[in-house]
Simulated scan of single mutants.
Amino acid sequence: MITGRTADRYTMQTLFLGLLLLGTSLLLFAFFADNSIMTVIVVILIGLTGVPMNPAMVTRVIRIGNAGTLVNSIHGSIISLGVAVGSSIGGMTIDAGLGLRSTIWVGFILAILGLITLLPFMIRSKNMSHHDKEITFI
């Protein structure tokens, strides 16, 4: 509910903060997976940041694609493709003998790659006037 409201008004900032928190949680998980208390904390953080970012992703796609039904269908397919690719890469790291913790590193790297894709927008919006920023969110 909170993410949906912030995604409507601050789409890119919600995505950026969500990916930053998700990446940080995954990094902490990778380093402290042997600590049961820390594991519980970071798994909760991952759940609170990863899944709720969906409204922000959908909002971004709908605004960019002018709410076309084909764009929305493709967006759902891309999410499924991302789950399949991420899971496959994680499985390959396990098959390569890197252990279960390697899947956490895969998630961390994917979160960082997601952040990198947002940087051009964040830099561009920082250089825009307030009026121009409002236009980009309409």
Score class of each variant (00 low, 15 high):
V61P: 01
L70A: 15
V51R: 01
P120N: 10
G107Y: 06
I109M: 02
D8P: 04
S88L: 12
K126N: 06
L17I: 15
L119Q: 05
S125E: 15
I109L: 05
D132R: 08
F108V: 04
A84G: 01
T49N: 12
K133M: 13
G86W: 01
G91V: 11
F31M: 03
G68A: 11
R60A: 15
A84F: 12
L20F: 10
H130Y: 06
I37F: 04
T24Y: 01
G47R: 13
L19N: 07
L98Q: 07
I116L: 09
S129I: 05
D34P: 14
A84R: 07
N72A: 03
I41H: 08
F121A: 07
V71F: 03
T24Q: 00
L28V: 13
F16E: 06
R124I: 03
Q13P: 03
A84Q: 03
S73C: 05
I89A: 02
L27C: 05
L98W: 01
F121G: 11
K126S: 07
N72T: 11
T11A: 00
R124M: 05
P55C: 13
G90Q: 07
H130F: 06
M57R: 02
A84D: 01
I37K: 04
I46A: 04
G114Q: 04
A67I: 02
S25M: 02
K126A: 14
V40R: 13
L17C: 13
A67W: 05
D8I: 05
N127C: 15
L119P: 10
F108L: 08
V51W: 03
T39I: 11
A96V: 15
G99R: 02
G107P: 01
V61D: 04
V42R: 09
S125Y: 09
L113N: 08
M92G: 02
A67G: 08
M128T: 02
D132H: 04
A111S: 09
I104P: 14
D34G: 15
G47Q: 10
G23Y: 00
L100A: 08
G76W: 00
I104H: 05
R60G: 09
A111L: 03
R101E: 09
L21N: 01
W105P: 05
A67K: 04
S87N: 14
D34R: 12
D95S: 11
L15Q: 00
F16Q: 05
G107W: 01
L118V: 02
T69R: 04
L22G: 08
T14A: 06
R101A: 08
L22R: 06
G97V: 03
T117W: 01
L26N: 12
T59H: 06
N72C: 00
I78R: 04
D34T: 14
L100R: 01
F16R: 07
S88Y: 15
I46R: 03
G97Q: 12
L17A: 15
L119R: 09
N35A: 15
G23T: 02
R60S: 12
